[in-house]
Simulated assay, not measured.
Amino acid sequence: MYKMTNRVPIFAHRGASGYTLENTFKAFEKARLLGADGIELDVQCTKDNRLVVYHDLDLFRLTGVRKKINECTLEELIKYPLGKHILRRFSKERIPTFQAVVEWANGYNMPLNIELKETLLNNHNAMIDCLQKLELPMGSHFSSFHDELMRVVKMQRPELQTAIIATKKFNWQDLWKQSHIDAVHAHRKYYKPEYFKACIEAGKGLRYYAITGKEPYLANPDPSVIGWITDFPDTVAKAANRKK
């Protein structure tokens, strides 16, 4: 384990997805054992308004089922083994509920980076019901490509941190206007001075994703950086802890 408290926090992308199946308890536990400082995960909504942890809108990639996740009830979803191709025939992994993952995280005081996905755009009520009673480990936060979902989070729970995920169309110069946004999550290709400056001037933090551990700046990051998101938390931790 390479966990340290004096470096930029490292969030394991969909758990330790570089080593095991994404967004499963196996991936989350692997990340914890590898010393990750937090877990990044994806939250979708089912047909019967239950929040579950799964990345894709379509189920086919990991279940072989040609349906969308919001066309299924929770009872139906938990019957589908998760895995890639033929391996899923032998898999005991199932789509976790968000509630179960939160309980796991609270048990280990493991911060969560909760990405809210597209199925919640037409179902704010399910998210609001969850937010009103949600207790999370310190250091947890919400993120999304969808600005309106971050507005809902901030309206319901102003004390919770929110992060917008940058796209090509993202206007970095307007960040200072976004009072409902606390941070920006960006691909490592945006690790450039102009983006550091935009976030510092707006008073927002930066977390970078798709980090591999080979980046030369990990041991001495820009002050604007408040997090790394990676499939390989142990590799990134080694690089971040390495002395210059």
Results as ranks from 00 to 15, higher is better:
Asp58Cys: 14
Leu33Tyr: 07
Pro216Arg: 14
Tyr217Ile: 07
Arg157Met: 05
Phe28Gly: 01
Ser140Trp: 09
Arg32Cys: 02
Ser143Phe: 04
Leu120Tyr: 14
Val184Ser: 12
Phe28Met: 12
Arg66Gly: 11
Asn49Trp: 02
Pro193Ala: 12
Ile86Glu: 15
Ile78Leu: 13
Phe232Met: 04
Ala166Arg: 15
Asn123Thr: 11
Val236Arg: 08
Lys79Gly: 05
Ala36Thr: 09
Arg89Asn: 08
Arg188His: 03
Pro158Val: 10
Ala202Asn: 09
Asn49His: 15
Pro223Val: 10
Phe60Leu: 11
Lys67Tyr: 03
Ala27Asn: 05
Ala237Met: 13
Pro111Asp: 09
Ile165Asn: 08
Lys169Arg: 06
Ala16Val: 05
Asn6Thr: 15
Ile164Ser: 08
Lys214Thr: 10
Leu121Lys: 13
Cys130Phe: 11
Phe28Ser: 01
Arg157Val: 05
Phe25Lys: 02
Leu175Asp: 04
Pro137Cys: 14
Leu175Asn: 15
Val43Lys: 10
Leu121Pro: 00
Phe142Glu: 03
Ile165Leu: 14
Leu120Cys: 07
Thr73Asn: 00
Glu148Gly: 04
Arg14Lys: 14
Lys26Gly: 00
Pro96Met: 06
Leu131Trp: 02
Ile114Phe: 01
Ile86Thr: 14
Leu62Asn: 06
Phe196Glu: 15
Leu206Met: 14
Cys72Asp: 08
Phe145Leu: 13
Thr167Ala: 14
Lys189Phe: 06
Arg188Phe: 03
Ala183Trp: 01
Lys192Ala: 08
Asp58Leu: 08
Leu218Trp: 06
Tyr54Ala: 04
Ala166Cys: 09
Lys30Tyr: 01
Lys243Cys: 04
Arg61Asp: 07
Gly227His: 04
Ser17Asn: 05
Pro158Glu: 06
Thr46Cys: 05
Pro223Thr: 07
Arg50Met: 10
Leu136Glu: 01
Tyr108Ala: 07
Val153Gly: 00
Thr73Phe: 04
Ile226Pro: 03
Lys243Pro: 01
Asn49Cys: 15
Tyr108Glu: 13
Phe11Gln: 11
Tyr217Trp: 15
Arg50Asn: 12
Leu120Met: 12
Thr235His: 13
Phe98Arg: 03
Gly213Tyr: 08
Phe142Met: 14
Leu206Arg: 10
Arg207Ile: 03
Gln178Trp: 14
Leu41Ser: 06
Lys238Ala: 02
Asn220Glu: 07
Tyr191Gln: 01
Tyr208His: 10
Tyr19Phe: 08
Ser179Ile: 10
Ser179Trp: 02
Cys72Phe: 07
Tyr108Lys: 12
Ala12His: 00
Met110Asn: 01
Lys30Val: 09
Leu136Arg: 12
Ile211Tyr: 12
Leu175Trp: 02
Gln44Val: 10
Phe98Thr: 04
Val153Pro: 11
Glu75Gly: 10
Pro96Gln: 12
Leu21Glu: 06
Cys45Pro: 03
Ser179Pro: 00
Tyr2Gln: 15
Gln99Phe: 02
Ile10Lys: 08
Thr46Ile: 02
Ala27Glu: 03
Ala36Cys: 10
Leu62Arg: 01
Leu51Gly: 02
Val184Glu: 11
His180Tyr: 09
Glu135Ala: 08
Ser143Asn: 07
Gly213Asn: 15
Lys192Gln: 12
Thr235Arg: 12
Gly203Pro: 11
Cys72Ala: 07
Leu77Tyr: 04
